[in-house]
Design a binder for these strands. Structure first.
Lengths: 119, 119
DNA sequence: CGGAATCCCACGAGATACTG
DNA sequence: CAGTATCTCGTGGGATTCCG
């Protein structure tokens, strides 16, 4: 008989969740993912347009990034009749909202905690 | 006058949140972080004990990982009177719970989505 | 314009050995 | 036991060049 403290702790169950969390991290944690999603949320964009928008990213990296995001269904790529290639926001990207929200909340709070402690 | 659709979108505000989310990712996304936190949640452990528990991690990587986690206040390190060094769970680590929860939820759902789509 | 190919370098991480 | 030191190697990313 164990006492229930602040949190119920089930190590085995937690251990199962870790790989899933790591999968998510694999998608989100690459340097440009969130910025690209945000940029496209502001409107469809062409490759070079996107590259200009995200200052600092190389064509190669942007290309790889876009491929990955498309594979994961987070963005859409469409070739128009005139040959123009357009990258566009995909609704599925919105499914990341709560994840990103939690991440940024923790990040903000953590930065403050660190600042208050050390200096 | 714009219509409010599923989500209210404020690019500038989102852009502010990204660095915070990236800060959080920097802490969480390293390969062993979650596993170490989980291991210590199951009880205080010594260095080698921890290394055995996390099969596959090298002493060097574990050492660096522990330093980082301690700096971020996510674990505690205590040297006992007899010289034993003990790494222990810190309550602050629990602040990551909701982040990790969202990550794993998304990871699980995403894996299913990918499986259903492609095969 | 929208990339792919190539080259090159830096850095993270593994393995191993060593030390107080 | 609790790490540190060294060495090595794979991978990611930048810069540049080329192509349809």
């Amino acid at each position: 008989m164990e006492t229930i403290t602040t949190t119920t702790h089930n190590p085995a169950r937690c251990l199962e969740l870790i790989p899933a969390a790591e999968d998510a991290l694999y998608v989100i944690a690459s340097k440009w993912t969130m910025r690209i999603l945000l940029a496209l949320r502001g409107g469809d964009k062409r490759f070079n347009e996107l590259q200009r928008h995200l200052s600092g990213i190389s064509a190669r990296v942007l290309s790889n990034e876009l491929k990955g995001l498309e594979l994961n269904g987070l963005i859409a790529r469409r070739t128009l009749d005139n040959g123009t290639v357009l990258y566009m926001h995909n609704d599925y990207a919105d499914s990341l909202k709560s994840v990103i929200r939690e991440l940024s909340l923790w990040g903000i709070q953590h930065k403050q905690k660190i600042r208050n402690k050390e200096i």
